[in-house]
Design a protein around this nucleic acid. Sequence first.
RNA 1: GGCGCUGUGGCCGAGUGGCUAGGCAGAGGUCUGCAAAACCUUGUACAGCGGUUCGAAUCCGCUCAGCGCCUCCA
Length: 502
Amino acid sequence: MSLYDQYPVSIYNSLKKEKEVFKPIHEGRVGMYVCGPTVYSDVHLGNVRTFVSFDVMFRYLKYLGYKVRYVRNITDVGHLVGDADEGEDKIAKKARLEELEPMEVVQKYTNGFHDVMDMFNAIPPSIEPTATGHIVEQIEFIKQIIDNGYAYEKDGSVYFDVRKYSQDHKYGELSGRNIEDMLSNTRELSGQDQKNDPLDFALWKNAESGHLMRWPSPWGIGFPGWHLECSVMSTKYLGEKFDIHGGGMDLKFPHHEAEIAQNKGCTHSGGANYWVHGNMLTVNGRKMAKSEGNGFTPEQLLTGDHKLLERGYSPMTVRFFMLMSHYASTLDFSNEALQAAEKGYKRLMASVNLIEKLGQPGGSVDKEKSAELTSVIDQALKDLSDDFNTAKAVASLFDLSTKINTFYQQPGELAKIDPEAFEYAIKHFKGIIFDVLGLRNEGEIAQDGKTLDGVMQVLIELRKQAKFSKNYALSDKIRDDLKEAGVQLKDEKGGEMSYTID
RNA sequence: GGCGCUGUGGCCGAGUGGCUAGGCAGAGGUCUGCAAAACCUUGUACAGCGGUUCGAAUCCGCUCAGCGCCUCCA
């Protein structure tokens, strides 16, 4: 029996607006598509949160034994600048500002994005397709939509005919909107005269002279519309029907709504069965966004070089902080919260490090105590299967952490644990922490240095001698000075000493 | 205006109609030469007002406060 049968996953489906038992289309296999970043500037924490959320889903589904194909695109063309109605492309605009080739801009920020994802230990997706790499497919997709009667051409551009579409399908099913409301609330926008209807959106845009991104098409020189790539690439790599589609809450409308319409308009299938939306990161209760000026770069987060940051925080502290809440809840950033997360993270890692130092379990096995141990793991897996509730799972991990610490201090307690139960619990304890939550043991990395460890052993030996001769002034000085240098010495039972690096 | 969300103890943050979430901080204790860490103990929490119910933080209604989307946004 596989783990996914043992711990069936349920997911909150934005499309149905309720939690459902997850049933993949193909037994044992999952196709997952997540809307990736637009690479025209640095990613900020909000982006990181969303991708970390989906990274955990990817990791957990694999942990359960599913074979997962995870597709996350790179948007390197297509999104229009909000206040420029002339149809100027974000990337083209940025290119002009920086006097670069558009593809130079794309490459620069794609590299940066990958570096940041790596820093936060997010596993690269199975496929990371780019919009510019799928111009041909996008053109074919548009042709089919036109053939199906849901799009029209006008002056070298092609628009999706929302009204026509809504006669046959429900437009707005994901975001809970209806066409009439939207019509009466449409804002006055200039430059929309080409469209038959303000609700229509572009599938292909005619490139004006001087526009930097241009490709030939049956409708002239131009570039693909803002929403098209995701429809096209999810269909290409996952099929007309696939399992999970994810993205940030703010993409629900219009982006995902348009995506569904394009999919149905082309293939008559709506794409994903389960739509999953991650919530926003907030600062003082407000969405972290570039326009608010309350976001910061990962570099600033590490160094603490930002007016909102009291000091820097390590990547794993931040990752752990994010996992202490549920992906569908807003998460409010504050220095206090981050500092609390940092302590919690270190506490967890300290227990992990202790595992190696534990003696042998068993001897005078207490069945109840053993069952208690495995039930904590059981609970954690149930919680993860319950819409990926990392917050709850983390609580179980802390329970286990306490138990491990007790085992270390009181070997008698460890003797009560059945060796098999112990092995099972430790395997999953580590599995959940490292494989599912994707945490890295930052302290351990620092301790890898053999030279440093050798130096530490010398200092520890000196301190032991000082203590033995009751020269507490010297032994305290060694400890205090090391503390100053970022190394915490701990006296243990039996006169042994250990150290941790901050 | 339309669609939707949230309001939990000092802070962050889970939560099922009845059983201690958890982390951080605080208090007391054990251990220790002193620390640190760890362990144990400790908190009259669920915005307000009504209603449903044997029982609601959890369901319903209203009020108040805040937020998101509706334009690019994770």
